[in-house]
């Protein structure tokens, strides 16, 4: 049971990051290699706010706002000039961003490991169904589920979501109908970055906060969005659950096989349904 909850909590964390990654790809057509670095930045920002104010919840609220601004700036200054350029430019640009972000974080916070104290009330465990389950991980699951619901509602039921879905489907036509597509792109990138920031803040009390934390998670995120289908939020949920559970149960029962299992899931999906579980098969033009 506790493995199940751990799997869910990993899934939620993966979802927060993958949702942003897949939204950004769906709308901007960019594979954002810097997404892991942004997640790391989120963790450090959350750490700083929590350390200064001794309030985890404040950190959780402030971090996405700060990261949204960072994301908007990155989109306008770095990405906007290169949308029309070949993919290599975007690859290099987002890769370059990783280096810039890492150095900035290193300059501000140094090399030592940081961590965020588990907020009071969520430390320790509860005894349910015969096992001990970490309260914080339970919180992560509930919080993650709430975020999934919020995202779905926002995308499927609001005007903004409608504009976003139309623009992702066909930016040129959306623009001809009156959508200021440039602004939508900035908003999506800011949203994706904010989600990664929330992921970083949530991860703070669970994982060590250090410069390499982005790398270890970004690979899983790419696997998630490929399995789920690029640009698809439902797919991100399904992929995150799959990989989260694989990781948790793998850790519990066959630790040496985790990576093989994870990549195995990826390979099988690509063989059986290369467009992803929820992806649409694109006709080659």
């Amino acid at each position: 049971m506790s493995t199940f909850v751990i799997g869910l909590s990993i899934a939620m964390l993966l979802f927060l990051l993958s949702a942003g990654l897949t939204l950004i790809f769906g709308m901007l057509g960019i594979i954002n290699f810097a997404h892991g670095a942004v997640y790391m930045l989120g963790a450090y920002v959350a750490y700083q706010v929590a350390a200064t104010t001794h309030n985890f919840w404040l950190a959780l609220c402030v971090t996405p706002l700060v990261l949204a601004v960072v994301g908007a700036i990155i989109e306008r200054l770095v990405l906007r000039p290169i949308y029309d350029r070949p993919h290599e430019f975007q690859l290099l640009a987002t890769f370059g961003l990783i280096l810039v972000l890492e150095e900035a974080v290193r300059m501000i916070w140094g090399l030592q490991l940081r961590s965020i104290a588990t907020p009071p009330g969520l430390s320790g465990s509860v005894h349910v169904f015969g096992t001990d389950i970490s309260k914080y991980r339970l919180f992560v699951v509930v919080f993650g589920a709430a975020m999934v619901a919020l995202l779905f509602f926002g995308i499927e039921r609001t005007r903004l979501g409608l504009i976003l879905r139309a623009s992702s489907n066909n930016a040129g036509m959306a623009e001809m109908l009156g959508v200021e597509v440039g602004r939508v792109r900035t908003a999506i990138f800011a949203l994706g970055t904010a989600l990664a920031g929330i992921g970083g803040a949530i991860a703070g009390p669970m994982l060590p906060i250090q410069l390499q934390m982005g790398f270890s998670v970004i690979l899983d995120c790419f696997i998630v969005i490929i399995i789920g289908g690029l640009g698809n939020i439902r797919g991100a949920v399904a992929g995150a659950l799959l990989i989260g559970m694989t990781r948790a149960y793998g850790q519990q029962y066959a630790a040496e096989w985790i990576d093989i299992a994870t990549y195995g899931v990826l390979v099988v999906t690509l063989l059986v349904r290369p467009q992803g579980l929820f992806g649409i098969r694109l006709r080659t033009a």
Binding site: R159, L162, I163, R165, A166, A174, L177, G178, V179
Partner: peptide, 9 residues
């Protein structure tokens, strides 16, 4: 929804 998009704009 195709129609609604234009309505909101």
């Amino acid at each position: 929804e195709n129609l609604r998009l234009v309505e909101v704009l």
